[in-house]
């Protein structure tokens, strides 16, 4: 489907189910990350294994000595005043600016988190069914044999590092690194968030004891939940940077209306 305007064509790049999923996700992931950070504030220490509490060594701790915030990694303290541990004149791990609600309230944060979790899981399931049935997964996200070659991947990495994004006909499809990033979120990070989240539930531990064993115990599941959330936050950051670099107006229009204008070829 192509509408030719001037030299660079406008193409229908993103179909409505993908656009709908994107915006539901954008909202729910922010709710999950922000309420998750509030929940983390209730016990800002992470452990490996089945159990772990204040007397046990934490591999990660966000805390403070008075008004001096710190992040302790494996017992090594890194000052973090103004960012985490102590910021906005608040002695919390994550400051009010980034938590939901914007003050310490564990029960309310849990309310947001579990409502958000249902929306996230339902929309993810809906998207996966659509992606499989419609061919979106195979056609748009799967890497071709050509793209899977290490040389081609390396070329894509260097092009990205040089800030040279595909243009013209090459921009008609997602590039390999972009596909890998999306596939990692869809098939690794989001499923891991759900699995590690369920593994922290004592009732689900009774229902699915193998899941708990697979993840190495409840406190390991909690640590992995945090790390995968950090992975999602990193994805969002890179994703937003790429949107700006690729042309925010064109990208936003594509994600809202579906229509994307192919960036013109570089003139030599």
């Amino acid at each position: 489907m192509t509408r030719s305007v001037n030299r660079s064509p406008l193409i229908l790049r993103i179909r409505w189910p993908v656009r709908l999923w994107h915006w539901i996700n954008a909202l729910t992931i922010f709710i999950m990350l922000m309420s998750g950070m509030m929940i983390f504030n209730a016990h800002p220490r992470l452990y490996w294994g089945k159990d772990g509490a204040n007397f046990d060594p934490a591999w990660l701790e966000i805390g403070n000595h008075g008004t001096h915030g710190f992040v302790a990694l494996g017992g090594h303290e890194i000052p973090s005043t103004g960012l985490v541990g102590y910021a906005q004149s608040t002695a919390l791990a994550f400051p009010p600016l980034v938590t939901l609600p914007g003050h310490y309230n564990l029960s309310l944060a849990r309310g947001w988190h579990f409502l958000g979790a249902w929306v996230l899981v339902a929309s993810l399931a809906g998207f996966l069914v659509y992606a499989l049935v419609s061919g979106h997964l195979r056609r748009d996200l799967g890497l071709s044999r050509e793209e899977r070659r290490p040389r081609a991947l390396w070329h894509d990495v260097t092009e990205h590092l040089r800030g040279r994004l595909p243009r013209g006909e090459a921009a008609r499809r997602y590039n390999p690194l972009q596909k890998i990033a999306y596939l990692s979120v869809i098939f690794v990070l989001l499923p891991m968030m759900v699995a590690t989240g369920l593994a922290m539930s004592p009732t689900m531990n009774a229902a699915l004891p193998w899941l708990l064993d697979m993840l190495g115990g409840r406190q390991s599941a909690r640590s992995l939940h945090f790390l995968c959330a950090a992975g999602l936050a990193l994805f969002i950051l890179v994703h937003l940077i790429m949107v700006v670099l690729a042309g925010p107006i064109n990208e936003l229009r594509a994600m809202i209306t579906g229509w994307y204008r192919l960036p013109p070829e570089r003139t030599p």
Binding site: I39, F40, A42, H43, R45, K50, D51, G52, A53, N54, L106, R110, M200, P202, N205, R218, Q219, R222
Partner: peptide, 12 residues
């Protein structure tokens, strides 16, 4: 058994 506090810590 394992005791899980709502805050996030666990003890057996």
């Amino acid at each position: 058994t394992r005791h899980d506090c709502v805050e996030g810590w666990s003890a057996i």
